[in-house]
Design a binder for these strands. Structure first.
Lengths: 214, 214
DNA sequence: GAGTCATATGACTTGTGAGTCATATTACTT
DNA sequence: AAGTAATATGACTCACAAGTCATATGACTC
């Protein structure tokens, strides 16, 4: 946890520091991320960084916490809505569309959190990250159980296998979207999500009915 | 490329050096991987490492090359066999089973290469890695095209989407197997692959027919 | 056994960047 | 306005590990 000094800062400054840090870690990774650069980009002296945080590691871990909380604060309504009774096959669509919006508005944060999730920065892993990953697993499992109960998911295959199947596809597709956004720079994100409509539909269809010829 | 001095070494010593390096990078990542430790574990002086390699980066990149080539040399027959006319749905089974054997015999190398593939070590990415990744993509696309021609893959969905779907599932499952092996240490790898028979069958079935209730 | 390569060695140099600290600045209180 | 507490600053320390190099060892030739 950061020191009191950090929490006493005005909101705007806190945000500037955090975004500078996240951007630095995003660009150079944890080991090569430079606190001096973070300070400079946040318009703050290097020494101040150590009035705010105990160490580089603490700063990094708080980046994860801060991003996660910001994303939940900003997009949380959707998350809780989808937790209710959404069809697994619509999940992919909803999820991808949501991510596209987030990518437009919070590019760095989304990519940073994806990296965390994918296990880059593995040298700073801590329990909270494991927790975050388990949370998502849990949510998928819940959806699968509900799907079975409501009769739109086949019951002859184990939940855990269905979960691996689903998360595999959904993560890979998410990555695909992200790479499109990442490699094309800022501009492509301005485009409409509708261009992916067909692709998402294809993936959902495959999830539902598989690749086998009828 | 390593220096001549390295290539003049007797095979056994070369291997000892490479395995020590791979193990070090596996344990501590690229940035925190220590050349001194590599040297010590290989039974060689630190200075010698610099008679063999220009820099740490060169050593790392050669680890990737060396592992890949060793794996191809050792298991390549299977790879070329599966390139011929294997059914996509059997691919998963063959592939997982193969990986289980490899995991038994070449634990460190398999996990190291998987990490490379998953984009950890992103600070040392070079063209050869991108190449390796594109190769695998290509292979999957080829299988899909053949599957469509031979009438066992549906034709109403784009190849690229089918590829994302397939690689997503197969990579996620591979990771699942790997984690089982990784977390349980050396011992679990001794067990027979047959324990996963049911799970692999489940995944293949899902690939073919999807999760939707009939 | 003298002379000439090729290789091995580990103490040393050096760049780097995390973390410190004495001092300056600002903010708040009476 | 004086006094005190909180925060800001950037030059400095210092540990670490990549990379160097002078010297030692060995291998091979005549």
């Amino acid at each position: 946890m950061p020191k009191d000094t950090f929490f006493n800062l005005e909101e705007e400054k806190k945000e500037k520091v955090m975004r500078a840090a996240i951007n630095e870690f995003l660009l150079h990774g944890y080991e090569n991320g430079n606190i001096g650069t973070v300070a400079k980009n946040a318009g703050v002296a290097k020494g101040s960084m150590y009035q705010y945080f105990e160490s580089k590691k603490e700063l990094f871990l708080f980046c994860v916490k801060w991003s996660t909380e910001l994303m939940i604060r900003k997009y949380g309504k959707h998350l809780t809505r989808s937790e209710r009774h959404i069809n697994v096959f619509e999940y992919m669509y909803e999820n991808s569309k949501e991510m596209w919006t987030q990518l437009k508005e919070e590019r760095e944060l989304v990519i940073f959190l994806q990296n965390v999730f994918l296990g880059k920065y593995s040298s700073v892993k801590d329990e909270s990250m494991e927790f975050m990953i388990r949370m998502i697993d849990q949510q998928v499992l819940k959806m699968i159980r509900e799907g079975k109960e409501n009769g739109y998911i086949r019951k002859d295959i184990d939940d855990s296998i269905l979960a691996i199947f689903m998360t595999g596809v959904s993560m890979r597709f998410k990555e695909y979207l992200m790479n499109k956004a990442r490699s094309a720079g800022e501009d492509i994100v301005d485009e409409d999500f509708s261009q992916f409509e067909k692709e998402v539909k294809g993936i959902s269809e495959l999830l539902r009915n598989g690749m086998g010829e009828k």
